[in-house]
């Protein structure tokens, strides 16, 4: 029974990882770009949401707003920030030299954004973790002796809805076809009439939206936000993405859940300090022994969304 309860808890924990892992895998699958701003966007939603719920809009535009409104504004901030990132990691960057570290240029820019955003938030809101004034996170459902917390259940449902919606968007819509074409071969997609300049920002909007939703769900579930909340989640999400296979959405879903389970089991059997070693060790082993992951293909950008 205890084990079953642990598994339920790990699925709930994993659902936050899943959303962020899907954001990572989307950018890698379509643009072959490891976006290091993703954990920062996640944190940005949590912190701006907290600031608006606690202090109100900046420059005295309003008093403290109710937490759902604050979180929606927080998600919008993440989407906007993600679009700014798009400008400086893709739009203004032209490949000129063709040498082998060239693919790193967007990655390096995103590291720059990570430094800027994280430190700006620290300057604005301080280094401390803050209590998020959300709903009571301890509302629980008792199903035959197993406890499920209601906010966590909501998170899980939202995550499932996001993943299904995203799959449908990619499979069925015109934009989705464009995105898959770019993932396959950007140059050919361009020649065949996919407007890259209009389609690429969609990836970043989706990234911002996913991270924002994950950040909002995290704030509600754990009732606590901090400028460093993205680091841990980013770690676990990257591990989940790699285990599932880079560029595969369903792989990221499964990988996120596996990491949640791995974490719960590690804490249960070995204690909390060893989680880092186990999760990163699993990632490293997967990369070395089975680089395509559980669902991905060996090379990036070859039609696997």
């Amino acid at each position: 029974m205890l084990l079953l309860q642990q598994i339920i808890n790990s699925v709930m924990l994993g659902s936050v990882y899943v959303t962020v892992a899907v954001a990572f895998t989307l950018t890698i699958g379509i643009l072959n770009f490891l976006n290091f701003t993703i954990p920062t966007l996640f944190m940005l939603t949590g912190m701006t949401g907290w600031a608006i719920a606690y202090w109100g809009l900046p420059m005295g535009l309003s008093g403290p707003l109710p937490w759902p409104v604050a979180l929606v504004i927080g998600i919008l901030v993440a989407v906007l920030a993600s679009l700014v990132v798009e400008r400086f990691t893709f739009r203004y960057l032209k490949t000129r030299y063709g040498d082998s570290t060239e693919h790193a240029i967007p990655l390096v820019s995103s590291l720059g954004f990570l430094l800027v955003l994280e430190n700006l938030v620290q300057i604005g809101y301080g280094n401390d973790s803050q209590r998020f004034p959300g709903p009571d996170a301890d509302l629980t459902l008792n199903i035959g002796g197993l406890f499920v917390r209601i906010p966590q259940l909501v998170s899980l449902l939202v995550t499932v809805a996001i993943v299904v919606g995203l799959t449908l968007l990619l499979k069925r819509s015109r934009i989705g076809r464009g995105l898959r074409a770019i993932a396959e071969n950007p140059d050919a997609a361009n020649i065949l009439g996919v407007d890259t300049a209009r389609v690429v920002p969609v990836v970043f909007m989706l990234t911002g939206l996913l991270c924002g939703l994950a950040g909002a769900l995290f704030a509600v579930n754990y009732g606590e936000v901090s400028p460093f909340m993205g680091e841990d989640i980013g770690t676990k999400a990257i591990a989940g993405m790699v285990i599932g296979g880079l560029g595969s959405i369903w792989g990221a879903v499964l990988g996120g859940l596996v990491v949640g389970l791995l974490e719960m089991m590690t804490v249960h059997f070995f204690g909390a300090d060893t989680v880092q070693v186990v999760v990163w060790g699993a990632l490293l082993l997967t990369l070395i022994a089975y680089p395509q992951g559980l669902f991905g293909h060996n090379s990036i950008g070859k039609g696997k969304l």
């Binding site: 400086f88 967007p106 820019s109 720059g112 954004f113 430094l115 994280e118 430190n119």
Partner: peptide
């Protein structure tokens, strides 16, 4: 000013550098 400003400046320089002179 906060110590963090130094890292903000490092980050901004990184972003600008990648746009202007990525090599």
């Amino acid at each position: 000013p906060d110590e963090s400003w130094r890292f903000v400046i490092l980050g901004l320089m990184t972003i600008l550098m990648m746009v202007i002179r990525p090599e």
